[in-house]
Amino acid sequence: MTSTGAAVAATPAAAPTGGASEDDGARHPSVPGAPPGSSRWRQRLEIALFVTPALTLMAMFVVWPVVSAVRMSFFRWKGFGPMDDFVGLRNYEQVLTDTVFRDAVVHNLTIVGLSIAVQLPLGLLLAVLLNRRIRGRGLLRTIVFVPYVLAEVIAGVVWFQLLQPRSGLIEEILTTVGITPPDQGFLGTPDLALWTVFVVLTWKYLGLAVLLFLAGLQGVPDELYEAAQLDGASWWQTQRSVALPLLGPTIRTWAFLSMIGSLQLFDMVWILTGGGPANATTTMATYLVSQGTQRGNYGIAGAASVVLFVVAFVMALLYQVLVLRRDTADQR
């Protein structure tokens, strides 16, 4: 089997439709997929038994909170007393006209765009390099992946120290090279803060891209390289014309993961800047957390959650329709 997608799609063809097979299972106990003597009811009971714990957890801690967020978004509610001050869409109006939130959306989208524009070429370059038969390749691969394993918080605290104005190592290095760091430090200057956060995020997540691309490159059959080599292609030509096109599905899936991650960005920003300076690095997630927990504007937080979800969902859907569908079609 090649993928879940294929498996999912193949199921109806491989087996008769669900209803029919249930009946078959009851009448002919020897049909694969049902133990002898098991009745329809017994099978249903077993399924229920197997699925209940997971569904209960999901219902309680995923579905219910999301539904409450939607409900909350229609009320003015400070977190105590009954939720009865229905305000219709006013919370949405307030969130969508709040320049802080609008900026937050822009920041999220900037990180989405930058990640793909910067981490994709960088990741590809490193993956192609690491795919060569160089000494210490295994060790190199482990090292590249180290930042990804660290908690965002821990990486953030170390970088916060590195980026300290005046006393931090980064400014020290830049000063020796002859670059004057900004007075307020990189994280304290509104024009630079978001870029600085992005640099740290790239440090943290580039390893994942490299790793996934490497896996993709290893799926390229050696014969293809050899054929290209025989035809007189140079190493770079081979990478560009043979390996890269075959990496397509891996790249597209990585970009999707990266996009979803960037839209949910919270930890790193909270640690490095807390959304500041002057809201220069707020994201949708930091906005809704500070509205909800620090200011007690639960209705506003609810509306912001819903907007975050809608943005993520629409982008995921668009991506699925416009980009990933090609892969699914390819697999057929």
Partner: peptide, 10 residues
Amino acid sequence: LFPVAVAIIP
């Protein structure tokens, strides 16, 4: 598709 952030306050 549901990030924790969406559901965090509830």
